[in-house]
């Protein structure tokens, strides 16, 4: 798949996210839009997963730690063929499989239940340990947020993954510098985060989280790396693709009203045109 095709998939997924959140009336657009390129790269290019056999013991595991960005996970899984796209219209509705935060077992393709922050990396590490006991070559991708690095549990897992040399564990951090109360560096500074991970014994790759060339290279490089776990520090723009949301922490957990939804879709249409006529950088 070419980078242009991947960018179009990501754009479609962003449309799906906006439509679902606009209808649901609550949820988290900022991180969902920001991570659409990375989810697209994983599910449509790099990860060994099969929507027709979601429980294949040899599959790569994709663990979403910051569960509040599940709209991007749901949309990607739907577009990948795990379940019908129409399910997206039931996001956060009574009786829906689309829970407000992802629940394992509610939908095929979900590896964990998540939402409370800081516990995804340790579950991913546990999976990597278990897979290694079974001599499996499967990779465990764990998608985390920068804000959840304020949780102690996360750093417990950083230490453990390094101790056990979990080189099949690849963490991709959504480094978008925002959280509910403001910027991460105002709430609780995290930088220099790459240095911190290196000091903990991790391999670190720093990328632009919207550049498919960099995303794919980073995942391939991390997969070939041995001896330590890898952090892909992905610099992203929260709200990516929707002009009035981009970079604004106020859109972390607020959904667009009907008028804003139309404006957002129009923005995404314009991005799609730019991708198709080759003027969009991806």
């Amino acid at each position: 798949m070419t980078n242009q095709e991947l960018a179009l998939y990501a754009n479609t997924i962003r449309h799906d996210i906006i439509k679902a959140l606009g209808k649901a009336g609550s949820g988290h657009p900022g991180g969902s839009l920001g991570m659409a390129d990375i989810f697209t790269a994983l599910y449509f290019s790099e990860a060994h997963v099969d929507p027709k056999n979601p429980n294949d013991p040899n599959r790569d595991r994709i663990v979403l730690s910051n569960g509040h960005i599940c709209p991007v996970l749901y949309a990607t899984l739907a577009r990948a063929g795990y379940f019908p796209l129409e399910e997206m219209q039931t996001l956060r509705v009574l009786g829906s499989k689309m829970q407000g935060h992802p629940h394992r077992g509610a939908l095929p393709g979900l590896e964990t239940t998540s939402g409370p922050l800081g516990s995804g990396l340790s579950q991913a590490a546990g999976m990597a340990l278990g897979l290694r006991m079974d001599k499996s070559a499967a990779r465990v991708f764990c998608l985390t947020s920068d804000g959840e690095h304020q949780e102690g549990n996360h750093w417990e897992a950083v230490m453990l993954a390094s101790k056990y040399k979990l080189d099949r564990l690849i963490q991709i951090m959504d480094r978008n510098y925002i959280q509910i109360d403001g910027t991460t560096e105002d709430v609780m500074p995290l930088d220099p985060v790459a240095d911190k991970y290196r000091a903990f014994g991790w391999n670190v790759i720093e990328i632009d989280g919207h550049n498919f060339t960099q995303i794919l290279e980073a995942i391939r490089s991390a997969s070939a790396h041995t001896g330590t776990p890898t952090l892909i520090n992905a610099r992203t723009i929260p709200g990516k693709g929707v002009s009035y949301m981009e970079g604004k922490f106020t859109w972390h957990g607020k959904t667009p009203n009907a008028e804003d939804t139309q404006k957002a879709l129009a923005d995404l249409d314009a991005v799609r045109d730019a991708i198709e006529n080759g003027t969009y950088v991806y």
Binding site: A125, G126, D134
Partner: peptide, 23 residues
């Protein structure tokens, strides 16, 4: 056997991950 150190939050969640891997 996995020694997680003095880290009870990790104890529970790493165990959850191991269970997810069939243990």
């Amino acid at each position: 056997f996995v020694q997680v150190g003095v880290a009870e939050q990790n104890l529970a969640t790493v165990a959850s991950g191991l269970a997810a891997a069939g243990k």
